[in-house]
Design a protein around this nucleic acid. Structure first.
Length: 456
RNA sequence: GCCGCUAUCGUCUAGGGGACUAGGACGCCGGAUUCUCAGUCCGGAAACCCGGGUUCGAAUCCCGGUAGCGGUGCCA
């Protein structure tokens, strides 16, 4: 088999725009990108839109949005495969002239009937000049076509079982297996990294490439990703698309880290990696062969780790843009101060707002919280707390902690009997950042107002 | 039906003939941190699909079975 020269890596991500980009596609894009960035190679984006029915501008835009959000930048493209159809037609004409492809009016039923008669061998048609006949590639009757796969090793397909497959429709428009082969060859792609579902198509593409006298790229077929139930990924499996991951409050760098590890592992079990480290360490040869299940719980944990390590300003920016998308807009400085006390408590951006909302809005109304922590016996203590609060100066977390701790000790109370009623009074709920931080951030005036309201 | 791929804790994985009483991570369970939640720290339960073979020795190699998955379109 002839192989493309491996001077400079040229890889491509070639999605068909049938809707949102799923995490399987996102991982494929990531692996291609990682290969290009790790080798100083080129990452090409090509949209496989030869099926005009399914390819809409909205779908293309969704994929591009997803790649941008993931920060996977491409060096060339996006190319439209459809727009390259004249190149494909030229190739088809050449193949017909060379006698390796021929027109055949047989329909799908005809092919089935033929195969039934011939013991399920690969279909072999009869050339015809009939108007509207599709074009098929002639497949040899014996021998086998071997795909040298970087991940799986050599995989051989008997030619006898392969149909003379259609490379152009009756109206002359090119089909996928022809277009892919032509584009990969003409774009000088050195490594085709794509989902496992294309493995069975690969011998067809190799056959086209050879018939065209073109170099055959290296192939790497990635195991497919499945949902929590072990079935193929779909909308019903929670956050299965990149957009959903973004809306759920995950950070792109965390998603990249998580996705990289779905199917690939390091020799030393390193789990948390910056994108730079990913680029440096990733190798397609180490990708596993078995399919993996997308587990959002591990992503959540990983995302939390990334969030906690973010500098406060970047953290605030991330929270701000997430809130904006959700329709909440608050002042930057106030948000930054709020984030400072909540940063180490959230695992996703979506979890931040519930923790800090009391700083921007009146307390929420949580009946169960009131019933449990604002009973008559609590109000007595709360009155005492109010007095301490009114006198505490400066009104900062450290001083508040000192005074409130002293108050708890003097009265011989359990901390919980004091802090939970106070928390419910100022936030309305039983969950918030640290109580001293929360009170300090709220400020004396608003805190006293809320305590008074609770005392009423 | 035919062609092809895959098989280590619930999940992601390390390991590729002896270092394996099978390692790590998420999750789970228990404990600690005595303001909630989260986090953090410590401890624990938890796996080589089954059957043959090769070998002194197999999670690792071979064969068979089973299961899952992909393809089998004038879809991509």
């Amino acid at each position: 088999m002839s192989t493309a020269s491996n001077d400079t890596v040229r890889v491509r991500f070639a999605p068909s725009p049938t809707g949102a980009l799923h995490i399987g596609g996102a991982r494929t894009a990531l692996y291609n990108w990682l290969m290009a960035r790790g080798s100083g190679g080129t990452f090409v984006l090509r949209i496989e839109d030869t099926d005009r029915e399914r390819s809409t501008p909205e779908n293309v835009e969704q994929i591009i949005d997803a790649l941008r959000w993931l920060e996977l930048d491409w060096d060339e493209g996006p190319y439209s495969q459809f727009e390259r159809r004249e190149r494909h037609k030229e190739a088809i004409d050449r193949l017909i002239e060379a006698g390796v492809a021929y027109r055949d009016p047989a329909t799908a039923e005809d092919v089935l009937a033929w195969k039934a008669e011939h013991g399920n061998r690969g279909y072999r048609g009869t050339p015809s000049d009939e108007e509207g006949a599709a074009v098929r590639l002639r497949v040899p009757d014996d021998g086998e076509t071997v795909v040298e796969d970087v991940i799986r090793g050599p995989v051989s397909f008997p030619n006898a079982a392969q149909d003379d497959f259609v490379i152009a429709r009756g109206d002359g428009t090119p089909l996928y297996n022809l277009a892919v082969a032509v584009d990969d060859a003409e774009m000088g792609i050195t490594d085709v990294v794509r989902g496992d579902d294309h493995l069975s198509n690969t011998p067809k593409q190799v056959l086209v490439l050879r018939a065209l006298g073109a170099d055959v790229p290296r192939y790497a077929h990635l195991p497919l990703l499945h949902g929590p139930d072990g079935k193929k990924l779909s909308k019903r499996h929670g956050a299965a698309s990149v957009q959903e991951l973004r809306d759920a409050g995950y950070l792109p760098e965390a998603v990249r880290n998580y996705l990289a590890l779905l199917g690939w592992g390091t020799e030393d079990d390193t789990t948390l990696m910056s994108t730079e480290e990913l680029i440096e360490r990733f190798s397609i040869e180490r990708v596993g062969r078995s399919s993996a299940i997308f587990d959002e719980r591990k992503l959540r944990w990983m995302n939390g780790r990334f969030m906690r390590e973010l500098p406060l300003d970047e953290y605030t920016d991330a929270v701000a843009s997430h809130l904006k998308a959700a329709g909440v807009e608050v002042g930057r400085d106030e948000l930054r101060a709020a984030c400072a006390i909540a940063q180490d408590k959230a695992q996703t951006l979506a979890e931040v707002w519930p923790l800090i909302r009391f700083l921007f809005e009146p307390p929420v109304d949580d009946e169960k919280a009131r019933a449990k922590f604002l009973k008559p016996e609590h109000l007595e203590n709360l009155r005492g707390v109010r007095a301490v609060l009114a006198e505490t100066d400066p009104f900062d977390a450290a001083t508040l902690e000192e005074r409130l701790t002293a108050f708890v000790e003097e009265r011989g109370l359990k901390p919980k009997e004091v802090y939970q009623p106070l928390r419910v009074a100022i936030t309305g709920t039983t969950v918030s950042p640290g109580i001293f931080d929360s009170v300090a951030a709220l400020g004396r005036e608003r805190t006293l107002e809320r305590v008074d309201a609770a005392l009423d």
